[in-house]
Amino acid sequence: MAFYQFKREQFIKSNISEVWDFISRPQNLKRITPIYMGFDIRTPDLPDEAYEGMIIAYTVRPLLGIPTTWVTEITHVEPQKYFVDEQRVGPYKLWHHEHHIEEVKDGVLMKDIVSYSPPLGVLGQIANALVIRKKLEEIFDYRTKAFEEIFPG
C-alpha cells in the first residue's frame, strides 16, 4: 500500500476563537472548496460545531464531474487546537486529515496534514503522481485564497 502525506501551513490575520469558530463548523467546508468540485453536504441538520464521533456525508465531483460519495468521521477534537477527520466511505484506502491551529504573533498559524493512500495499488501510485497530488495542491491553494478573503486582517 502506497502512503503519502500532504502538508500545508497558512498564517491567518485573526484570533484563535474566530478561526476555530470557522473551521470547526462543517457548513463552512463548501466556502473553502473549489466550486468545480460540486461539493454538497448530504447530512441533514448538522450542529454548529464538530464533535468526536460526528459523521458527515458529502457528494463531491473531484474528477470529470463524476459524483462521488464521501463519508467522514470527526475522530478527535481539542477545541481551539485541532480536530481530525477520517474517511469512512470514499475514494481512498486511507484518508486522515489533521487540522491544527495555534496562536502566534499577530494571528493564527493553521496547519493541515493529510495522510492518504490511493486505491488500486500501482495504478493508485501512478494516479497520485499524475493527478491526486496536483489536485490536493490545487484545493489547498484555493483554500489559502478563501481564508485570505474570509479573514483579511
Rank of each mutant, 00 (worst) to 15 (best):
A50Y: 03
S17K: 02
T59R: 14
V60E: 05
L64Y: 12
K105D: 11
P118L: 11
V71E: 15
V108H: 03
F11G: 06
P91A: 12
W95F: 11
W20Q: 02
R31Y: 07
Y92N: 09
W95H: 09
E98Q: 10
G121K: 08
R25C: 15
H100V: 03
V122W: 12
Y82Q: 12
Q125L: 09
P62A: 09
H76V: 12
L64K: 14
T75M: 07
K30M: 05
E18Y: 00
F11L: 11
N128V: 06
V104C: 11
P91E: 06
Y116M: 06
Y116I: 09
D112K: 02
P119K: 14
T68D: 04
R25Q: 14
D112Y: 02
I74N: 06
I35N: 11
T59P: 01
R25Y: 10
K93W: 00
K93N: 12
G53M: 04
D112P: 06
E98C: 03
I66F: 13
W20D: 00
N28D: 04
E102T: 11
Q27R: 13
I16G: 04
V131A: 12
H100L: 08
Y36R: 12
L46M: 10
F39W: 11
A129T: 10
P91I: 13
H100T: 06
D112F: 04
V89R: 11
I132L: 15
L109K: 14
D40G: 02
E103M: 07
P62Q: 06
I113L: 13
N128R: 09
P62C: 07
Y51R: 11
P26M: 10
G124H: 08
D48V: 00
S17L: 00
G38C: 09
N128G: 06
W95Y: 11
R88I: 12
S117G: 08
T68A: 08
R42G: 03
Q10C: 07
K81L: 04
H100W: 12
Y36C: 05
F11H: 14
P26K: 03
N128L: 05
E9D: 14
V104N: 07
M110H: 01
T69E: 11
E86T: 12
I35L: 08
S24V: 00
T59Q: 14
K93L: 11
S24D: 02
E98F: 10
P91M: 15
E18T: 02
G90M: 08
D85S: 06
V131T: 09
H100Q: 09
K105Q: 10
G124F: 07
T43N: 09
Y58F: 15
P119N: 10
R88H: 12
F83L: 13
F11M: 13
V122F: 15
L123M: 13
D40N: 12
V77S: 04
I113V: 15
E18P: 01
V114E: 05
A50W: 00
G65Q: 03
L123T: 07
A127G: 09
F22W: 01
D48E: 13
D48T: 07
S17G: 01
G107R: 02
Y116F: 13
Y82V: 02
L46D: 04
V114C: 08
I23Q: 02
L64V: 04
D40H: 13
K93I: 01
Q80G: 01
I101S: 01
P119L: 12
M110S: 02
G124Q: 00
Q80N: 11
G90A: 05
Y82M: 13
I132D: 01
